[in-house]
């Protein structure tokens, strides 16, 4: 019996072997080829951009940190200073200790952050109604026109617009003085206003993108449930566009934090972090590098907050 069965089995085994065994083997081979190809593909796709960004950009940030740990040493005559490549925390001590010098840098930092917050707030307050009009009220034709009108100033003339504002703001006979009888003149307020003007398109586009994704039916549902316009705005629109607002704010905040040209044009004697870095760079590059760590820290904190709010995907 056993023998017969055995013979039978022996006959069956090759059949089973042929019909079942090759399949899993083939499947795993295909899977392996696919997986290899997938990994190869990922390697091809990932290597060039990550090499560029990690080596060139992250590497540059590394070079910045290294430079910030160097110092400028004057020779015995005191006439020539040259770069000393021994690591020292001197620059950071100069920034952080509470002597008179460092309070200057603290003031500059606070002033820059204050401007960045103001610019972001102004842009957000102006962008929301404009973007809402474009996305939900304007006709299709008007929508396209307004989007073009808002994005076009991004193309040209950041500096030219700055100089045009300089003329309009001029306290001795600029257009603002002529028409409104008042101008903020040149200084912190002028810089902040002009920067809000310059970065407005970034905020407007971000908020528009968020509103465009917001289905009209949500607004209608809110109205049907008895909400007035303001209540709908506060309870439906605002929570939905919050990530877009944060994404836009990253641009307006960071662009202001790193700007120094507008201060040179309309800021009078006002200095932001960028002005100090620019001025120090030709005199004391290591100190300039150390001061550049301050806006990095501010932006990292800001980005971590934005990521917690889920806004980084919107960037």
């Amino acid at each position: 019996m056993g023998f017969r069965l055995g013979r039978h089995q022996r006959q069956l085994i090759p059949i089973i072997h042929e019909s079942q065994s090759p399949k899993p083997l083939g499947r795993s081979r295909v899977a392996r080829i696919l997986a290899t190809r997938e990994r190869l593909r990922l390697a091809i796709e990932l290597t060039p951009p990550s090499a560029w960004m990690l080596i060139i950009y992250i590497g540059s940030l590394g070079a910045l940190i290294i430079t910030s740990l160097y110092s400028m040493q004057s020779d015995p005559t005191g006439l020539i200073t040259k770069l000393d490549t021994h690591f020292t925390a001197m620059n950071f001590r100069r920034l952080l200790t509470s002597d008179s010098l460092s309070s200057v840098y603290r003031t500059v930092t606070l002033r820059t952050v204050q401007s960045a917050v103001t610019v972001t707030t102004i842009d957000a307050i102006v962008a929301v109604p404009v973007a809402f009009y474009v996305a939900k009220v304007a006709s299709r034709w008007a929508r396209r026109g307004i989007i073009v009108a808002i994005t076009m100033p991004l193309w040209a003339g950041y500096l030219v617009k700055g100089y045009a504002w300089r003329s309009l703001l001029d306290p001795s006979g600029g257009a603002l003085r002529k028409f409104f009888g008042h101008t903020p003149g040149f200084g912190f307020a002028a810089s902040t206003l002009v920067l809000a003007y310059q970065w407005f398109p970034y905020m407007a586009i971000a908020v528009y993108a968020g509103l465009d994704r917001l289905p009209d039916s949500l607004l209608e549902a809110s109205t049907d449930l008895g909400a007035k316009a303001f209540r709908t705005f506060r309870s439906v629109v605002l929570p939905q566009i919050r990530p877009s607002l944060i994404a836009g704010s990253i641009f307006t905040f960071s662009l202001t934090l790193g700007d120094f040209y507008m201060n040179r044009i309309v800021g009078g004697t006002t200095e932001f972090i960028g002005n100090v870095i620019y001025r120090q760079f030709s005199v004391d590059a290591p100190f300039a590098a150390a001061f550049a760590v301050v806006p990095i820290v501010i932006m990292v904190v800001y980005l971590l907050g934005a990521r917690a709010a889920g806004a980084l995907e919107e960037l």
């Binding site: 540059s60 910045l64 641009f251 960071s254 790193g258 760079f281 806006p295 932006m299 960037l315």
Partner: peptide, 16 residues
Amino acid sequence: PIALPGIVTALALRSA
């Protein structure tokens, strides 16, 4: 590079 202020990107690349 776009999230960090322009002056940081500028100075970092120049340092490198």
